[in-house]
């Protein structure tokens, strides 16, 4: 059976456009504030949301997401809040996944976590620090729960390893646009397009590009060659240190312009990637 995420990506391909995916950590700026922010993203035309599991030692994240996660943890956000936020998004009809470092999954219980994600209507989990070599227990649990296992690949990933990692990935492949941590950048690295092209050689799965994509112009550029555009830090920046209502106004403005930009991208005819179907959970 297809997950909501797979359906959404399939549909976007059918419309010859890239899907727009937004990231926000659960509990940021508060548990309820996060849900309102998710509503804004969905209403502004985001195709899917990634709900971050705030973690004490986020080595993949730059200062903006660190600060947001820190704030969420200071607010006392727990596993149940992450799952509750996921449930909120899926009840609103959005395709939603959780993005988390590995230790919270291990401590929750690997099987139990996969099951809880499915229960909350979640489509899958992005695991940025779960290496291929350590991934088997999670892949088995996720398969049993019928959810997607989304892995991140980087410009430094060798072709041989791209084959391995994409082989255990479902939903979409998360292509890190550059060598570095999350955060806003003035331009999207050239390495992103090269990486997407290399991934196309070994996999038919949709490819979404994240890390450092923050402005409508950058989103439009990425949308010309990728199946998905992932925005994180730029959205969070709208809410950091601001009154929630004012922050949400700014967030909506940015979200609408990102959605318009992504949809207006000039894409090659669907022949290149669109002809190949998005694949279901293996």
């Amino acid at each position: 059976m297809q997950t909501s995420l797979e359906r959404v990506l399939h549909q976007a391909r059918g419309e010859n456009r890239a899907a727009l995916i937004g990231y926000i950590p659960a509990g940021f700026p508060t548990v309820e504030g996060c849900k309102r922010a998710i509503d804004v993203l969905i209403d502004s035309g985001f195709d899917a949301v990634e709900i971050g599991y705030p973690y004490s030692d986020p080595v993949m994240d730059g200062p903006i997401i660190q600060e947001a996660a820190d704030q969420a943890l200071r607010n006392g956000v727990k596993a149940k809040d992450v799952l509750g936020t996921l449930h909120h998004a899926t009840e609103r009809g959005a395709a939603a996944v959780v993005m988390t470092y590995w230790n919270p999954i291990e401590q929750f219980g690997v099987d139990k976590f996969a099951h809880a994600i499915a229960q909350a209507g979640g489509s899958g989990v992005i695991t940025p620090d779960l290496s291929f070599e350590q991934a088997q227990p999670w892949n088995q649990s996720a398969a049993r729960a019928g959810i997607n296992t989304i892995y991140v690949v980087a410009p430094s990933t060798t072709d041989d390893r791209l084959r391995k990692v994409t082989g255990i990935t479902s939903g979409f492949i998360y292509a890190a646009s550059l060598m570095g941590v999350t955060g806003t950048r003035t331009s999207v690295s050239n390495s992103a397009q090269e990486l997407v092209a290399r991934i196309r050689q070994v996999s038919d799965l949709p490819v979404a590009v994240g890390l450092g994509v923050s402005t409508p112009e950058q989103a439009r550029e990425v949308a010309t060659y990728a199946d998905g555009v992932i925005i994180g830090s730029a959205l969070i920046k709208e809410l950091l240190g601001k009154d929630l209502d004012k922050g949400l106004v700014g967030l909506e403005e940015l979200a609408l312009s990102l959605a318009a930009a992504t949809r207006s991208a000039n894409r090659e005819s669907p022949g290149v990637s669109g002809a190949k179907e998005a694949r279901g959970v293996k």
Binding site: E133, S156, R161, G180
Partner: peptide, 18 residues
């Protein structure tokens, strides 16, 4: 893999694997 029984291994961003 660098495993000592169930310990060790690699839990890192893919960017560091190479």
């Amino acid at each position: 893999t660098g495993l000592f029984g169930p310990y060790g291994g690699r839990y890192v961003p893919e960017a560091l694997i190479a």
